[in-house]
């Protein structure tokens, strides 16, 4: 279980990016974090990844405190961040340097097949389209089999069609080993398609505003009325999060009470 306890981050220039964020995320759960710009979404993700240190509060994974990057936690960024001097296959195998070559090759080959890029194995990253490059990034993060995979607006730079395709693809890959997914997004559609639970944050300082359980079976039909309902409730919550007259909601209530308004 990934536990965030009163995680706060104040930057040296005094900006309070994140204030007392607490949440518990169960193994295999998919959580989307959504919120207006500057609400500390990325700050939170970077603290969980161990890339930045929280000013106060703790991040623990299975009772182990996270202060630096951890083998069980993978991250996918907004940009693919492939290493341009490595072939696609070598990029995917980047995190497997400790394994014997044969085993690494086998895992990379399987991952290439799973992201449908086998024929691009020896291509350079510059020869890939945006969607292909992000698929390689997903494969690179998943191939060491992390327990937690963090995604920082992973599809926001892609066109709508490719984005949908990759969302479905991500769920497909997730089903293989069922890691915990924690996804930062500003796309309501994406949050409702992917997440079991949506955490809405509000800015200045960045903090938890609301949580919404998405009680929808999978695969989800983007056109069903129920789907629309959930989207509407997330949108409403987002609107309210930006309305400064609305007080913070006590974020300790259980599931099923999300639509309290």
């Amino acid at each position: 279980m990934l536990a965030l306890h009163r995680v706060s981050k104040t930057y040296p220039n005094g900006v309070e990016a994140l204030a007392r964020f607490s949440a518990e995320i169960h193994q295999g759960e998919i959580v989307a974090i959504i919120g207006g710009s500057g609400c500390g979404k990325s700050t939170l993700l970077r603290a969980i990844a161990g890339l930045d240190r929280a000013s106060s509060g703790t991040v623990t994974l299975d009772d182990e405190a996270i202060a630096s990057p951890h083998a069980k936690i993978g991250i996918i960024f907004q940009e693919p961040r492939l290493l341009p001097w490595l072939s696609v296959a070598d990029n995917i195998g980047f995190g497997l340097a400790d394994l014997p070559a044969a085993e690494r090759r086998e895992k990379v080959a399987r991952a290439l097949e799973r992201v449908r890029l086998t024929e691009k194995a020896q291509a350079w990253p510059r020869e890939l389209s945006g969607g292909q490059a992000q698929r390689v990034a997903i494969a690179r993060a998943l191939v060491p089999q992390p327990e937690v995979l963090l995604l920082d607006e992973p599809f926001s730079a892609l066109d709508a069609f490719t984005r949908r395709d990759l969302q479905d693809h991500l769920l497909d890959l997730w089903a293989d080993t069922r890691p915990t997914l924690m996804l930062v997004t500003h796309d309501v559609d994406e949050a409702v398609v992917l997440a079991d639970r949506v955490l809405v944050m509000r800015p200045r300082p960045g903090r938890l505003f609301d949580r919404i359980e998405i009680n929808l079976g999978r695969p989800r039909d983007r056109n069903s009325p129920l789907f629309e309902n959930f989207k509407r409730s997330v949108l409403t919550s987002l609107d309210r999060s930006l309305d400064r007259s609305v007080p913070d909601r006590d974020a300790t209530q259980g599931p099923g009470q999300a639509m309290w308004w």
């Binding site: 510059r126 020869e127 890939l128 389209s129 945006g130 969607g131 292909q132 892609l158 066109d159 709508a160 069609f161 490719t162 984005r163 796309d187 309501v188 559609d189 983007r222 989207k231």
Partner: peptide, 15 residues
């Protein structure tokens, strides 16, 4: 959602 309309997939082969 505005992004619902399928858009032409970006070409998979850069020049």
């Amino acid at each position: 959602m505005i992004s619902d309309a399928p858009v032409l997939q970006q070409s998979s082969e850069p020049a």
